[in-house]
Simulated scan of single mutants.
Amino acid sequence: MNVSEASKQTGVSTDTIRYYEKEGLIPIIDRNESGNREIDEKILRRITFAKQMRAAGMSIKALKQYIDLVDDSEDNTVRQKEILREQVAAMEERRDDIQFAINHLNYKLEHYEDHMKATEAELRELEKK
């Protein structure tokens, strides 16, 4: 199948598929006589894997390290788990930051009349000076 068909099947844009190939997240895709990429099941599975790991928040750099370990003939389980643990920690930190922001906004909503209105009035006064 071509890149457009693979894009439809995986939900990954054609540009992203080309980027994944360029970055080594998926193997180099064979081309037909016309120079068009010919994507097989192996490549589709790699595209889907990369998409899932990116959706889990993994950076391109970390994903490349992980995939290199997967492709290595050695048993890299320890390092692969380490990368996954690092990813969990990073996502938990992002979650905590998001939760802090949500709590802050909820506080602002709950105290809009007695806090936000006064703060906004102060900001307007400062703009007049």
Rank of each mutant, 00 (worst) to 15 (best):
V88R: 09
R95T: 08
A55I: 06
T48C: 05
H111P: 05
K108Y: 14
A56G: 05
E110I: 00
K129R: 13
R85D: 15
R45S: 14
E23N: 10
K51C: 00
L44F: 00
S59P: 04
R31L: 07
Q9R: 15
E113N: 08
S34Q: 13
Q65W: 02
F49T: 01
E86D: 11
S13E: 10
K51H: 00
I17M: 10
Y107H: 12
D71F: 08
H111S: 04
R95P: 04
I17K: 10
E127Q: 13
V88G: 02
V3M: 07
I17S: 09
Y112Q: 02
I26D: 00
F49H: 01
T77L: 14
I28Q: 13
M53F: 08
Q52I: 03
E41V: 06
S34K: 15
I83V: 04
K51P: 00
T16I: 10
S13L: 09
S4K: 11
T77C: 09
L105W: 03
A6N: 04
S73I: 11
E127Y: 06
D96V: 01
H104P: 02
K128Q: 15
Q65N: 12
L126I: 12
R54G: 03
Q99S: 10
A101K: 15
F100N: 14
Q87L: 06
Q87P: 02
M91Y: 03
R124P: 02
N32L: 04
K42L: 05
S4E: 11
R79M: 14
L123F: 14
T16M: 15
E74V: 05
A101N: 11
D75Q: 12
T14C: 08
Y20N: 09
N2M: 08
Q87R: 05
D75G: 08
T14I: 10
V88F: 09
N36W: 10
K81Y: 07
F100D: 15
E127T: 11
V3E: 04
E110N: 14
Y112C: 06
N76L: 03
S13F: 05
F49N: 00
T16Q: 09
L25V: 02
K61S: 12
N2D: 14
K8C: 07
E38N: 14
I60N: 07
K128H: 10
G57M: 01
L69K: 06
Q65I: 01
Y112D: 01
G57T: 01
E120S: 07
R94W: 05
I98V: 15
D97Q: 15
T10C: 08
R37V: 08
L109E: 02
K108V: 08
A121Q: 12
N103M: 11
L109I: 04
